[in-house]
């Protein structure tokens, strides 16, 4: 684990992963979009509006997945004082915030024609909105506190506290009455949607995972470079 604490090690790993992640991303997103738009059936109740699902559901999954990545990174940073783990959480946050925002926006765009409203304050929508604010709070803490060490600790603690929201999102549709439908893919008894719709959904989901790897590597590089720059500036001020 601590081998990856060294940015040089990370860069070597990232260089070898990047072409694979990029290829998987292009292939799965291209084929996923093709099936989603051209070669999947319209829904018997929802008509063509069901195609919003192929953007909405994977984005919602990613919002939760990236949150867990951020939480695990925060835990590692707090317990083992792992410097790259702190950076990993910081690098992941904007990507997760973007996916959560996309889940909310595409959900609203789907809700308007199907439910008759862009928004309803039910358990599912509200807990996902809370997740979006947790991301914003995490990023705001990094910005607000001058000392990176202290900022990182505060942000990491917030990220860990926010983990309680993840099961709330997952089970909100079972616990409370809502307009939002219950799970139809991530079920113990298997998916209940037709394979013609499941395939494009899973292709986009895999594509989003690969996208996350690509975006995450670039944001890690950005954060590592920023840290290098600030260390060099500090040395210069110290007359070193």
């Amino acid at each position: 684990m601590h081998r990856f604490a060294n940015p040089a090690q990370f860069n070597r790993l990232a260089d070898s992963v990047m072409p694979w992640a990029f290829s998987v991303m292009v292939l799965t997103l291209a084929s996923g979009l093709y099936f989603a738009l051209f070669d999947s059936p319209a829904d018997y109740q929802q008509g063509e509006s069901v195609r919003i699902m192929y953007m909405h559901v994977p984005a919602a999954w990613m919002g939760m997945f990236v949150y867990m990545v951020m939480a695990v990174a925060s835990f590692t940073a707090l317990v083992w004082r792992h410097p790259l783990a702190l950076i990993a959480g910081k690098a992941a946050a904007p990507i997760g915030a973007m996916f959560t925002a996309l889940a909310l926006i595409t959900g609203a765009l789907w809700g308007k024609p199907m439910w008759g409203t862009y928004w309803v304050w039910d358990g599912r929508l509200t807990s996902v909105l809370v997740q979006f604010f947790l991301y914003l709070g995490y990023m705001a803490l990094w910005q607000a506190v001058e000392d990176d060490e202290k900022a990182g600790r505060a942000a990491s603690i917030l990220a860990l506290v926010g983990v309680v929201n993840i099961p709330i999102i997952k089970f909100s549709v079972d616990w409370w009455n809502t307009l939002h439908q219950p799970a139809s893919v991530m079920r113990l008894d298997g998916p209940t949607i037709h394979s013609d719709m499941l395939w494009p959904l899973l292709l986009v989901a895999v594509g989003y995972q690969a996208y996350f790897v690509v975006a995450f590597i670039w944001r890690m590089r950005l954060e590592i470079n920023l840290r290098k720059l600030s260390v060099m500036r500090m040395n210069e001020v110290a007359g070193g």
Partner: peptide
């Protein structure tokens, strides 16, 4: 099917 504005914006 009439949902173009919603689908394409998403």
């Amino acid at each position: 099917g009439g949902y173009g504005a919603f689908v394409w914006t998403a």
